[in-house]
Amino acid sequence: MSEHLSSLALDEAATGAPFEAADRDHLAGCAQCQTAVQERQALNARLLATPQAQAMRARLLGRPVQQQPAAVARATLVRRVVLTALPLAAAIGLFFTAGFQARPDDGDRIKGSVSVGVLLDGRLTGRAKVGAKVTVAVGAAGHGLVSVFAFDPASSSLEPLFPSDGSLTAAPKGASAPVGAPLEVTPGTTRVVAVFADSPAAPEAIRAAALAHVRGQPLPPTFWAASASLEVEPK
């Protein structure tokens, strides 16, 4: 495939929707399209955090609207301006959904885009068969701590993977570095969520941040999060 991905295929890749094998192959080897996917993922995450999107969510799903604290809203505005001009970090995450939160007291200090992906045979993947051995890779974007969870949208259950007690552990350096031991794919584990922080936090707060991310809600300003969808296929 010589041409770059269309808008349709980029949207499919950015949202984790099913898409063509040929497009998937192209994306795996094309840095330009990977960047385009990341840009869309960042845009999508920012859009879902807007008051308008939250109001629509409440209207459609009957979920109460969560107000953005004023300080976070200001930081979001700063972030929007800065992110428009800055290229996104080179972290490769074919199916991650990045959630940015600039710290209100940081002004325009932006560390970059956190990411998480699932590695199968050393390559990022969005699907795996039951029983396959996979590894989680994260891009901490300069943040020092990480906690990884498995989220099952069907049951809305969130289980800690690394560390197993849901606390934070040292994040590996690099744009996309493996973390934790290999995992076996089981039915129902469809989304990996990584929560990043710069200072220790209570497991309850970390879990709340992970849940906020999967619900598309704003995160507390001391957390950052990303997630990767994994389509689980039968053996």
Binding site: L43, L60, L61, P153
Partner: peptide
């Protein structure tokens, strides 16, 4: 909003999260 027959809340939530940005941008 009328109920969506055959879709539970997590499924609706997942559809909303996945497709809202795409629909909105278009």
């Amino acid at each position: 909003m009328a109920e969506a027959p055959g879709l539970d809340k997590p499924a609706l939530e997942a559809l909303f999260t996945r497709y809202t940005p795409v629909i909105y941008r278009r």
